[in-house]
Design a binder for these strands. Structure first.
Lengths: 224, 224
DNA sequence: ACAATAGTGTCTCTTAGACAATATCGA
DNA sequence: TCGATATTGTCTAAGAGACACTATTGT
């Protein structure tokens, strides 16, 4: 009996401009040498505590990024997904602000729109689709999208992030009420973003209690 | 390098009396020979299409049950969880009505209350806890619990199932309104359940469109 | 002063829960 | 008829979205 090929893949998501982007890398060996694919690789039992550890290691070694938010997405398996044989990939997804990409991503990282991932090798298109669906579902009733924002941000910025992730506009008043209720944000005293020819916006930061934890709502932010 | 031990475990849940129960089996080999544990076993790449296929096979062969609802829960991995070495278990959960257990479960199946699974071997207690949490989360905004009901059931019965799963009472009027809105049920013409000394209840069945698909609500059934 | 965006007040409509009325059975 | 549970009607209160008003900046 052939051994099962065990790997871990990571869907690293960020917002660039007005769209969600995935981080891809050119594969450095066969199969699909040179083709853009999700960062991933074999599990190293001697080195990795568990698959989450594998994901952290791969993200760090291959993209240079350490993501505060990293969650298991699911496991993809079967005979057909890898030409080398029956394989099993535990997929994770990570969310980072674009500032982290700019400051610490390796030069090999390529950002691609999540809407243009049809041609990825293996079943990576399916994995990206699952990550996208998970992020959208979770975003509609949680504080998940704050992890796509930098350390400090304004409410209009955060709302724009939610709108990019959910793909539809949100009522401003309702959005602010919801953020207020969640009690996850705190204004940074005296800090404003002066941008353009208009009233400056209050800068907020995530309250420390929620650095690692999500806040959940009873009702969807944007019932469709 | 040692190969990774790849297995699949299934959390089979049902309602018996007023409580959620898990199906357990006595282990037939070491480690933990004779100890009650989740149904599970090694992935057979020659035989299984993918891990979902492994889960179906194990459920069928070890418990005699074929569950219409079977969903991946997550993957549990690491050095410590199995005394034989670094291992990886893809966990699934299944929901079946108690009638299915009664009619087709193998005699070896033991039902245990989900609140008494602290002493399970490996990390099975953690897997059961994750399954329970998943089922509760999903039940609060979907039609998931109908899979714990037999083919035909009354609305009070279904409400009782929701209440067992969620662990708290639900407003009757709201519950009925929600079920109405979801449009997942249809009354069985002329079929009533005559039970006791009171008005008989209309029997309903799941509309065929929702046999395999869940219906989702925007708002939690029971905001707490 | 004007344009532009930030932030707030308030009205209305929808929906959830409380309460209670009606329906239908067996005893 | 009475007790019990099913089913439905309706009132009230909380929350969401629409709209518009105020605030504060650069030009």
């Amino acid at each position: 009996m052939r051994a099962i090929i065990c790997s871990v893949d990571v869907v690293l998501l960020t917002i660039e401009g007005d769209a969600l982007k995935v981080a891809l890398l050119e594969r450095d060996h066969d199969p699909f040498l040179g083709v853009l694919a999700l960062p991933g690789g074999f599990i190293h039992p001697e080195e990795d505590q568990d698959t989450q550890g594998s994901a952290v290691r791969m993200l760090r070694d291959k993209t240079g990024i350490v993501s505060p938010y990293l969650e298991q997405l699911g496991t993809f398996s079967g005979r057909g997904r890898d030409p080398r044989g029956w394989s099993l990939a535990v997929a994770y997804y990570a969310l980072v602000p674009s500032s982290v990409i700019e400051s610490s991503a390796s030069a090999a990282v390529r950002l691609r729109s999540t809407s243009a991932t049809q041609s990825l090798p293996f079943d990576h298109a399916q994995i990206v689709a699952a990550a996208l669906k998970r992020v959208q579902d979770k975003s509609s009733y949680s504080s998940l999208p704050v992890h796509l924002c930098a350390d400090s941000f304004t409410l209009p910025e955060l709302q724009a992030v939610y709108e990019v992730v959910l793909g539809e506009p949100i009522n401003k008043v309702s959005f602010r009420r919801k953020m207020e209720e969640l009690e996850i944000l705190e204004p940074i005293p005296g800090a404003f973003q002066a941008g353009g020819a208009h009233r400056p916006a209050q800068l907020y930061r995530l309250r420390s209690k929620f650095r690692k934890k999500l806040a959940l709502t009873d009702r969807a932010l944007n019932p469709s």
